[in-house]
Design a binder for these strands. Structure first.
Lengths: 335, 335
DNA sequence: TTGAAAGCGCTACCAC
DNA sequence: GTGGTAGCGCTTTCAA
């Protein structure tokens, strides 16, 4: 473990000034071909790489962005992160992934802490509906998926309302009326909108949503599981369930499995976001799908653009992506 | 987006020297209670946070480690990463996750690049069997899962040999003789050992492994899928398959599903590493399980220990964790 | 085309 | 207990 060489070492070895070495490293300035070659050779031979911390302190840029997500076990989040990484990498940025464990405390602590300050910008999927905390943040930021319709920030999201509307509409058109929804809390825009989409579709088709079929819980598999058991054990159970996210959908699938009843026959199901179980189950689950990876990519592009032209104080961009219904076999045709 | 205050700003505001402010920030030195309080108040009010780059350049420590993994879509890798993050976070370190996409080129490029230099250490799941590249790396490093039995590095792995041995032994004891294995390349120790475990168990029970049942491919779902189709379409198909990793296992499950034959009846299966599909399928899949999260935790502890006491050039630690067989219903009892 | 030197924000050593 | 100051490794004027 020998000490890494510094720019001074290289300069000294070549009997040149550090300025000159710095010049060839940065390419921008004019240096004689001969000198350039000498330097490059030495750099290669000595295996010199600029000290990152030193560069960032003088350039005031760290070339790292952070992806701040609630967790990594929800494939949607992971997919977004991978989209971010791909774009960042392609533009010479590194991505620091940080999971807040769904805790806004951890989320804010990260941002306020040293790390949050030393990145060039942040892409966050917030755990809390209140984004006011971020107005003080001194770096560019873009919200993905959840942004509570606060258009004072850049954001990329999808048409959640329409997603659940068409999901529920599909069930209705297949003849269902006793439709349940298992969804997350309404504080976050995603929860609110997906609930509204459900509600709107029902009313549009003159079906009064039944309170006992409406389950507002957490976005977790276990809540999906438990609520499904509960719903299906009622004396007047629903004929169809709308799962407002993938974790819930997975929980529902496991519950159905466990209860030993038949999907698409004894109970119908539509999920929000595709997932592996949904594609493996029998029949496969009809889902609302969205370009998850793309959401990360667009978010990263937006962020990097802001980082690169700091001056341009253009108005924040609120990008909304479409969703689509993928019909598979999990909704039974009634009548 | 106001400019972040520096330690000088704080000092100036208080009419104190930067040294004093630095002292209270770092806690170590003795400062009068009164001064300390004044500083702390100002820090809070001004929302001052030390500039990370500056600190690392003088302390020669960045407080970030890197987790360098082949990809994040294989749950095993993700689980290891999460273990790493947990330990790192608890010790005030940040984790930079980097996926090499299974390319040793990308892996080495990262290490040799600026980022690789500016972290305090690395935990890597290598994509290539040749670890000699890393002997030049000037930072502490620990290998997880794959280390090619090179005990000149710290490593944490599991007893792969025993894992596949007991998997295959289980099938044999259930009466199977026509046992297939779908596994990854043998260059990596994991591939080699898992193959040997299979081979050893077979010979131990006087069963000659049949070449046509031995599929050495990539650790991917698609290879698992294709090889399964192939195996099951043979005129003398195997009665049981051993899936040497989770991706392959998932592929097998999908193929079985697709072929419309019955798991645990028409074909038996044991997988290496648990996975969601294995727990969802009907019947559930018997698997070899290991403490994936723990592997990351131990790796991180090892690394941080090295980072913290640089002097102690103790001999490298090669930690090997046990595996266990979880019997579920995917192996049919023959005779 | 090249070099000298200032300065980025911070810590640590040496005075007082 | 507190302040002054030299550097850490680098980029960037400004001169030569």
């Amino acid at each position: 473990m020998k000490k890494a060489p510094t720019i001074t070492d290289v300069a000294r070895m070549l009997n040149l000034s550090v300025s000159t070495v710095s010049r060839v490293m940065n390419g921008r300035d004019r240096v004689s071909d001969e000198t350039r070659k000498k330097v490059l050779d030495a750099v290669k031979k000595m295996n010199y790489v600029p000290n990152y911390a030193a560069v960032s302190i003088v350039k005031k840029q760290s070339k790292v962005i952070v992806a701040l997500v609630p967790d990594l076990n929800t494939p949607f989040f992971l997919s977004v992160v991978q989209g971010i990484e791909e774009i960042a990498k392609s533009q010479g940025f590194f991505t620091m992934v940080f999971s807040s464990n769904g805790s806004s405390l951890e989320e804010h602590a990260f941002i306020n802490g040293t790390m949050g300050r030393s990145v060039d910008g942040a892409i966050v999927i917030p755990s809390t509906p209140d984004l006011s905390f971020y107005t003080d943040y001194s770096k560019p930021i873009v919200f993905v998926d959840r942004f509570n319709n606060d258009y004072s920030f850049d954001s990329v999201s999808v048409d959640n309302f329409r997603g659940s509307y068409i999901a529920v509409e599909h069930m209705i058109k297949m003849g269902h009326k006793k439709i349940a929804i298992i969804t997350g809390p309404k504080e976050l825009n995603v929860g609110q909108e997906r609930y509204w989409g459900f509600d709107q579709a029902m009313r549009e088709y003159d079906i009064k949503p039944d309170d006992k079929y409406i389950r507002i819980c957490d976005w977790t598999e276990s809540d999906g599981y438990n609520n499904t058991k509960d719903l299906l054990n009622m004396e007047d159970p629903p004929t169809a369930i709308f799962a407002a996210n993938e974790n819930i959908c997975r929980g529902i699938l496991k519950a159905i499995h466990n209860l030993d009843i038949e999907l698409g026959k004894d109970i119908s199901l539509v999920g929000f976001d595709d997932n592996e179980l949904a594609k493996f189950s029998n029949p496969k689950v009809t889902v609302i799908s969205r370009a998850t990876n793309e959401m990360g990519k667009i978010g990263a592009s937006l962020l990097l653009e802001k980082i690169n032209n700091k001056e341009s104080h253009s108005i924040p961009q609120g990008i909304c992506l479409p969703v689509k219904l993928i019909i598979r076999g999990s909704v039974k045709k009634l009548n």
